[in-house]
Every structure is written in C-alpha cells, then in structure tokens.
Design a protein around this nucleic acid. Structure first.
Length: 597
RNA sequence: GCCAACGUAGCUCAGUGGUAGAGCAGCAGUUUCGUAAACUGCAGGUCGUGGGUUCGAUCCCCACCGUUGGCUCCA
C-alpha cells in the first residue's frame, strides 16, 4: 500500500481499479453498470413520470433497464436522458441500501405490478432491500451491488433502445428497454466503442459481399444465394467433413426433400413443429418440406432387420432442410430458413452411447482445431420436467454424457432441466465477432424417435430390443458455420478453403503473358489462381486482392521474368521477395495439404 | 410474430413538396507504373412495392415487403 495510507482517511480509500483482482474487477464493473442502470431509471422517471420501473441488470459490457411507458423512446429521448444522468452523476450522491419489511416493500411499489411480482418471487428467507441515491430522490427495489456514489460512473453511454417482453415471454406486455455501456474509465470506454466498430468490419454479411461469396434478395428472404466463390467454400467444407466421415466410420445417405405428412405425424413433428414447417399440397395429399433429417433416417433404419452386431449404424446426410423462422429472428447466414447441416444419426445400443459420444467429440475437436475455434463452450443439458423415457434410461444416458466430458478433462457447464424432452444433450457454442454465441455442434440422445418408429434390433438372445438414436452435428448448419467462421477469421480463410488462393499481379502490360504462364503452371498443380491483367497500377491491383482477402499476391515484373520467379506478398502485408515459381507452388501445396490456418 | 430504426445508381452515402446528386465500381480513352486506390470522359436511378393527400410526392399519411438492432446476461 502507498505511504499516503498512513493517514487514516475518514472513509476506507477505494483501491484503484487496476489493483483489484480479476474477480474484484468483474464485480466492480457489475456494480458500476448496475448503478448506471439506477441512474438511468432516475433520469427516465424525471422525463417520463408515468414510467413504471421493472428490472435493470448489468450485462456483458454494459447494462439495460426495462420500462413500461406510454410510447417507445426515440433517439432524441436518449440524449435528453443522458443529460439528466450526467446531472445526477455530477451531484455525486451516495447509493444507500436499506432493508424493508415485505409489507413496506409492497407499499412502496403499490402502483407497480412488475415490482410486486418481483417481490412475490423473493424467497421467504431472503431480505428485501431498497436502494436509493440522489439523497433519496430516487428509490428502487433492488438486490444490491452498487458502487459507493454516482460520481464513480465516470464513463457511460446510452447505446440503443429495444422492445422487450416482460420476462422474455411473448404473452407478457412489451416493455421499452434502453441499453447502455459503462466503464471504469473513459479510456476503457473508448477502447470498447472502437472494438465494437471494428467488429462491424468483420461482420460476415459485409465481408461476404466484399469477398463475392453470397448475397440475399427479398425474393427469397433469409435464403442465401451462394455465388461461385461462396459455393466453393460451401462444397469444400462438405468435402472436408466427408473426409472425416471416412475415418470416423460414417456412411452417407441421401433422403427425400419432402414427405407426406404421415411421416411427421409418426415422428411427432406434426404436433410439435408444424409452426416451423413449410407445407404444400400434392395430389390432394398434404406434404411437408423436411425440417430435420432424423425421421427419414428412422425410416431407413426400419427398412431392414438389424442385428446387435451391426450397431452402431451411422447415417450421415447433407440434406437440405427448411424451417420457417420468425421474420424478426433471421440474420445473415447465422439464422436462415433453408440450410444444410453436417447431420448424422447414430443408431446404437445403450451401452454404446459413451463410445459414440466420445468418438464424435474427438472428431469435433479435430475439426474445430482446424478452423481455430479455441474458445468453444460445452454445455451439458439434463432432463427437463416434461420428458419421455424411463428414469433408468435418463440416468444411464446422462451419466454416460457426463462421464465422457469428465474423462476428457475439458471444461464444461451443466444446465439442469435444459435437455430436450426426448433426451439429454451436449451443445457446443462459438462466439461471433460481436461476442454473441452461436450453437454449432450438438450431440443429442433420443429415446423418443426409436419408440415412435418402433425401431428394433435383434440381441444375442434373439430378442427384439430398442436402439438409442443419437442426433449429432459438428459444424451444424453450413450456412451458419460459414458466417461464424468468416467473423472468427475476419474473412481470412485458410488456403485450403480459399476460393482464390493467389492473384497474379503483372506490373505492366508486357508482363501479362508471363503472369498467365505462371498461373497456368499453378493451376496444373491444383492451385486456384487468378490474373489481374487490368490496365491499372500495381498498387491498385494489390489493394483489390487485399479487399478480397486473397491469401497470396504474386507480383511479376521484369526481374521476376528473368528468374522464373514471382515476388510473393501475403495478405497480412508481408513481402517475401522474389521466389522461384516452383518453390511457391511447393510452399502453397504444402500449406493446403496441412490445412494450415 | 412484437418494439424501434432504416430502404435513393452494382456498393457506400448526400438531398429536396416542383420527377435527383457525390465517391467507388462499370464502360471508353490516356497512362505501363515495384507492394493497399493513376488521369480524363461517358454511361448508369419507375428514389423498396401499392394506395392516399396535393395542381404536383422520392419527400407528407396509410398499408405491405425487406433489412438491421433488440425481445430473462432476471429486484
């Protein structure tokens, strides 16, 4: 501690933020952000006295507060509110917590049904507390967790407004939410806002257009068009997965696109998923586009008699799926209405579950490493209240999944009650450029479909037994995967996945022929190369290749022609100088072979 | 689906109650250049769609379509 601390201050001196432990820092930020939410609520009440307060938690990078108000907030409201907040912060008043009795609490929020509901939800053995600031001018039911004074909220900014249902349920009234960000210093906030801006540069929709990969058109909302280069990426991913399947023992199948709805009545989708299905009528019969592959795989399994010796059977399917998603939730490639998954269903005996899941995670980890996903979050979801299958089945499956995760030693989270009604599952989440997480991989145990389709195998005693079905996807929807991958890599696809691996850049027109000759050599070696023979300056050609995220630029001029070489430049801006064309080919070929990131 | 914002040239955007502009891209010509944007010129838009108000609508109003940010990280 500093020497100045020898003088005993009247109040314990606050430690500087950077001297706090990581846990304390996180707590301080939460407190800061939650305090900012209080100040926000105060400001809103000043300007909109009729507003009803609800909740205002700290969130990642900031905070929000939900209000029940007569009309939605406008951008102008936001700046007015921000001004009010600043006044309150300048006043630098203390946050004061106090315990109140339940009756008193109810009295204090008598005209606020939301707060009443919150009080009802507080367990009997917990204290009910209110927190005030601005010398009591603002008072709110609050669990606590504040900074000492409003003045500590030195850096904040209101970012956006949004409608939000009370408790996130559509049946509830829609509240108006204000999002803001708050930091321990102005510098930190500046850094954050800048990062936010940079993340937008990595948005896959922006990069996808820039790289000429795909586009959307209102003629087919939420259905991407993949241009030649995008289709190349798409198909190369499928090829990659097929390669893994060959090693990990999967068999690819092809199944129909649309089915008589009898299938979905058997599978249960007709009762539970019809809202998301595209239906059509053919020959006065009701048909539906498949939203999932599992029913067709169950049909395929049921078409022949199976011995326990055949199991596990692993059917892989790159079938196109259609799901009607609400218009408000579709987004770029990450949430579309038509997509293909690297989907497969494993039919196995109960005692094979652990091995199957284990083998799947091996494959998944192998692939995620190739793509550089190193912050994958594994979540194990256990039995919900509403479920099918006996407790014994669930016990077995849950402990099998948990044991696999335990034995592998990696970190994972457990979500009680979050499993599907048909079985427990493990989901794998990966963040996008803005830190929003998307589910890519999943492995789900299913006790339901085998029952519904009456699937059986013959065991060693010649008796019929019920197999377990395992749904699993590694990259998940290829569309989403491509979107997340682009953001993850900032568009810098690895060489093996890159639609254009190298751009030949002739310095002057007289070098064009040589450039074409080099390109042809490289193409013969299996590389994907283009020649930019435009009558442009070399700088412009390089810039053009950079924007397209092309891995290598091969600059050729008089000197290179002399030596049968090309000056190699990487998209990271590195100039590797003149290298013999043969060497370049060898280098790139090696890089492709090794799936170098 | 719900709340809000937005929709103008291929892209990024400006603009006004009197039928529209810029930069980049495209095309033509000039330039032939050493590691992220050469110069000149030309061409390019039923201002998302459909109604309404108005002498007149890209602009104001309504509806629809689409896109974007949100819609339990719970007092």
């Amino acid at each position: 501690m500093a020497a100045s601390d020898q003088q005993v201050p009247t109040k314990p001196k606050r430690k500087r933020f950077r001297d706090l432990s990581p846990e304390q820092q996180a707590e301080y930020r939460d407190n800061l952000r939650h305090s900012a939410a209080h100040v926000l609520a105060e400001a809103v009440l000043k300007l909109f006295p009729e507003a009803k307060l609800t909740i205002g938690p700290p969130i990642r990078d900031g905070f929000y507060y939900d209000f029940d108000v007569e009309r939605p907030f406008t951008p102008d409201d936001l700046s007015a509110i921000e001004k009010e907040m600043q006044a309150s912060i300048r006043a630098n008043t203390a946050f004061v917590e106090r315990e109140v009795s339940r009756d008193e609490a109810r009295e204090l929020v008598a005209d606020n049904r939301y707060k009443q509901e919150l009080i009802d939800g507080i367990p009997e053995d917990e204290k009910v507390t209110f927190t005030s600031h601005s010398n009591g001018a603002f008072d709110d039911l609050c669990r606590g967790g504040h900074v000492d004074t409003t003045g500590q909220i030195s850096a904040f900014k209101l970012l956006s407004t949004a409608g939000a249902y009370w408790r996130g349920t559509e049946a509830n009234p829609m509240l108006q939410r204000i999002y803001g960000t708050a930091w321990e210093s102005r510098d930190k906030m500046r850094v954050y806002l800048k990062q936010r801006e940079q993340a937008q540069q990595r948005d896959h929709r922006r990069l996808g257009a820039q790289m000429g990969l795909f586009f959307f058109d209102q003629l087919a909302p939420a259905n991407p068009f993949f241009r030649p280069k995008g289709a190349f990426v798409y198909n190369t991913l499928v090829d990659y997965v097929r390669g893994l399947y060959q090693r990990y023992g999967y068999d690819e199948v092809i199944t129909p696109q649309m089915f008589n709805t009898d299938l979905f009545k058997t599978s249960g989708h007709y009762d539970n998923y019809i809202e998301n299905m595209y239906m059509l009528e053919i020959d006065e019969q009701e048909y539906g586009m498949k939203p999932m592959n599992c029913p067709s795989h169950a049909v395929m399994y049921s078409k022949s008699l199976h011995s326990y010796r055949e199991l596990p059977i692993r059917y892989a399917d790159f079938g196109r799926l259609h799901r009607y998603e609400l218009s408000g939730v579709t987004a770029g490639l990450t949430r579309v209405r038509s997509f293909v998954q690297d989907d497969a269903h494993i039919f196995c005996r109960e005692d094979q579950i652990a091995d199957e899941v284990n083998g799947f995670i091996d494959m998944l980890n192998e692939s995620y490493e190739v793509f550089g996903f190193d912050s994958t979050r594994f979540v194990l979801s256990l039995r919900p209240d509403k479920r099918v299958g006996s407790d014994e089945l669930w016990d077995g499956a849950e402990s099998a999944l948990e044991a696999v995760l335990q034995e592998r030693g990696g970190e994972f989270e457990t979500a009680e009650g979050e499993g599907a009604f048909y079985g427990p599952k493990i989901d794998m989440f990966v963040p996008d450029a803005l830190g929003r997480e998307w589910q890519l991989g999943t492995v789900q145990i299913d006790f339901n479909q085998p029952e519904r389709f009456d699937l059986t195998y013959v065991n060693a005693e010649s008796d019929r037994e019920r197999p377990v079905m395992i749904h699993r996807a590694m990259l998940g929807s290829l569309e989403r995967f491509i979107g997340v991958l682009i953001e993850h890599l900032g568009g810098n696809l690895p060489l093996w996945l890159s639609p254009t691996q190298a751009m030949l850049v002739p310095i002057a027109d007289r070098h064009n022929d040589y450039a074409y000759a080099v390109a042809s050599k490289m193409r013969n070696a299996g590389l994907r190369v283009e020649v930019n023979d435009a009558s442009e300056r070399m700088n412009a050609k390089i810039r053009d290749a950079q924007l397209q995220k092309i891995n290598y630029m091969l600059v050729v001029g008089d000197r290179e022609i002399e030596d049968d070489a090309a000056a190699l430049r990487t998209r990271t801006g590195e100039n590797l100088g003149a290298i013999k064309v043969e060497e370049i080919i060898a280098k790139l070929t090696e890089e492709v072979k090794n799936l170098t990131l």
